[in-house]
């Protein structure tokens, strides 16, 4: 099998090929070779408080996992990309755990969904605005 050359992702040249994760969230992609700004060139979103910081962290890793996942769908044999995928997936799980332990469950199968009274309907729905928040 000839070794294919991959230029989109490389651990050695990470800074060259990929945006830092927080900036990637602002821009909407990790991949520098795809990104072309229009009207604005966003940097990393800035969190207001601890809850928002954790949410941003999850969103950051969720985008990284999604973005590299789509890349892997069309380049499934790129070993280094698979490794980076798993690295970010671990970080996503950790951030998710920390968020749910503090601010309530995000999925109905979360380990934090246990307990009485029923928690799933509590806390906030993602479209709601701050002044509508009902709290836990």
């Amino acid at each position: 099998m000839n070794q294919k050359k991959y230029r989109d992702i490389s651990r050695n040249k990470t800074t060259q090929n990929l945006f830092p994760l927080d900036e990637a969230l602002g821009k909407g992609t990790l991949f520098k070779n795809i990104y072309v700004p229009y009207k604005v060139d966003p940097l990393a979103p800035i969190p207001g408080d601890e809850k928002e910081r954790l949410l941003l962290e999850m969103q950051m890793y969720a985008l990284a996992v999604q973005d590299i996942g789509l890349y892997l769908d069309v380049e499934p044999n790129h070993k280094e990309a698979v490794e980076i995928y798993h690295e970010y997936l671990e970080k996503l799980k950790k951030a998710n755990d920390e968020y749910e332990s503090k601010y309530g469950t995000l999925t109905k199968t979360s380990q934090y969904v246990n307990g009485y009274p029923w928690q799933w309907d509590k806390n906030n729905w993602p479209w709601m605005m701050e002044d509508e928040y009902v709290g836990l």
Binding site: L25, Q59, T105, L106, T107, K108, W127, M129
Partner: peptide, 14 residues
């Protein structure tokens, strides 16, 4: 499909 109670990107339009 599984629903996750979060958005891909923060939206806070005031």
């Amino acid at each position: 499909w599984a629903y996750k109670k979060m958005l891909w990107f923060p939206i806070n339009i005031k």
